[in-house]
Design a protein around this nucleic acid. Structure first.
Lengths: 339, 339
DNA sequence: ATCAATTATGCAAACGTTTGAAATAATCCG
DNA sequence: CGGATTATTTCAAACGTTTGCATAATTGAT
């Protein structure tokens, strides 16, 4: 077991003190220029590498940001991570990505570990489990430890936390209005989870847009789903088994939209002629589906960027009043909702 | 700035030495049971949390595995990560996921950081950049530091490294044979990158299967692509612009298959009647495309699991001879290649 | 009351690095 | 040559925790 070479080893070799080596390696002007050169050369030759762990202990900073996300299956999430990473890399920080798999206990475990490992800040997209159980105490623990914490992507029903999210209400409103604009009046909403604020907001956007257009949302056409394509199959079959069928469906995300489209095609329902479809996320595949699928773009990269920037702000300056940064989504119109 | 509470703080409070506190918190029998109780209670009350950094320094182990992947956009990669995480969690280890974005320098930077942070082992799916530049020295650095290193997913043209991969040759062979079995003779292959061994192996599987069936692969029908759907559009248009067109296409991955399918539908080419399609990865969406798409399943979860298990083996026992674990993929047949 | 055994606690070093202050060595100037 | 600079190096403490060994306090037996 080749233990990695340390400053002490080098000091022994040069018959000098560790401090001299440390200063030499850091190119400190107090050290003889010759000595500096010799030591540095020897160090690189031997593949010496600073032990970041001891530095972390000394400096009380790990130069690491922790990120806890419920999943990485959605392009939206991947893009957020890209956005975050672009900023952390610029700052020379590590990004420690953890995946909670939507599980509360896993999320708690991971946040615990990140805290124990003294990351400089934590970014969280809260798990489904935490919403379902309305259990947020682990976030308060972080806050009480004075570790900057920023929520991303999923809105949290808590004051006194910073967050960067997109305006789901707005996005849903836009999508719904678009369906109305192309002449659809009998709209359904495949709604995702009842627990996530995100979904609630989309539902609200859907309903209020209808109301503003003097229509009412049929409650039996607002259906809970999961977030994957499969979860849309059964609800779609049900929606289209009656005599009246929707002429437009707004889906809580693209995956659900994919599931809807497949099911409708199997039922020989023409899209968008008989029923128009809009998804949410604007995932890359939305443009490659057949038909291509209109979708709400959530500005994912910007969410990640902004969140990371905010985190670095918080690391430097003290947390004043919690900020809530809300980005406005935009609608990408494709074949599934136009002729 | 609420500095986190330390053992020393507690010792001061109880007018005892840090060692007593440490032992009390670890429930050491030498410490008076009363003292143990008092100290533990006080510690939890104050939200004391062991500083993992100092422990890492002391124990020369961070209880962390580093993972460097080129991207997380493919379900295949996500599933591998799931597999890895299932094992690391069981061992009480952290998983530090880094995304190199297929870039060599980013990969080098991340591996450097992981080493500096003294992770106990590293799992790598090598970036496209490293293959392109044939630059693997950073991996040797890891090896020379005696940090266990296991390659996953993408085969590396290097001996003396451990790896867990799927048999791409086999998978491609199976897929091709299936196309022949359903009566297709004029096959094209959308080949991905020329640099990745993975792609080369699939090409080899494709070609040799044809040869074994007394056919020859048309070299102008073996076309480089990227890994996303868009990159398939232009090649597909080209393939189908001549007088002779392929009656079967084997795609290097599902995303490319999605791009092909969309393009063919726009050209009014019937799938699978005129042209059958097979992808690679068996991503969840493959079943939700229209038509649903046959695909080679890469046993991603198992790859992750096996790799993580191997890593823990290596952490415990010394690295004897490098192992290469190869899993056999299986073909999932769907509408795009059957009637 | 004495000695031994038991029980409870403290000391000090270690992990690898940095850094202010102190110490030593080298050089300069008159 | 001696005092004053300047250049170079070392000391020691610190970050938070653990742990072998020593010490101190208590108990029990005689």
């Amino acid at each position: 077991m080749n233990e990695p070479i340390t400053i002490k080893d080098i000091a022994r070799k040069f018959k000098c003190s560790p401090s001299t080596v440390s200063r030499a390696l850091n190119n400190h002007p107090a050290i003889n220029i010759e000595t500096r050169k010799n030591i540095s050369e020897y160090a690189t030759k031997m593949g010496y590498q600073k032990n970041a762990v001891s530095l972390s202990l000394l400096n009380k900073s790990t130069m690491t940001i922790g990120l806890v996300v419920p999943s990485i299956t959605f392009s939206h999430e991947q893009t957020i991570i890209d956005g975050i990473q672009s900023v952390t890399t610029d700052h020379g920080f590590m990004l420690n990505i953890c995946i909670s798999n939507e599980s509360l206990v896993e999320e708690q475990r991971q946040i615990e570990k990140l805290m124990a490992n003294r990351v400089d800040a934590i970014l969280v997209s809260a798990s489904h489990g935490s919403f379902e159980k309305q259990e947020f105490s682990h976030f308060y623990k972080v806050k009480n430890s004075n570790i900057p914490l920023v929520f991303i992507d999923r809105e949290i029903p808590l004051e006194d936390f910073d967050s960067v999210i997109t305006d789901d209400y707005q996005g849903a409103y836009q999508a719904t209005q678009h369906l109305l604009d192309i002449g659809r009046q009998n709209l359904a909403f495949l709604a995702g989870s009842e627990f996530l604020v995100v979904c609630k907001n989309r539902k609200k956007g859907f309903e209020e847009c209808l109301k503003d257009n003097n229509l009412v949302a049929r409650q039996d056409w607002i259906v809970q789903t999961g977030f994957d394509s499969q979860s849309a199959v059964e609800p779609t079959n049900r929606l289209f088994s009656g005599t009246e069928i929707p002429d437009g469906i707004f889906c809580v995300n693209d995956n659900v939209a994919f599931g809807v489209v497949q099911t409708l095609i199997k039922m020989n329902i023409e899209i968008p002629k008989q029923t128009a479809i809009i998804g949410f996320d604007n995932s890359p595949l939305a443009g490659f589906f057949n038909p291509s699928i209109s979708s709400v773009d959530r500005k994912s990269f910007e969410v990640g960027q902004k969140a990371a920037q905010l985190v670095f702000d918080l690391i430097q300056n003290q947390n004043e009043n919690p900020q809530k940064i809300v980005l406005t989504p935009s609608l990408e119109i494709r074949d599934s909702s136009q002729f």
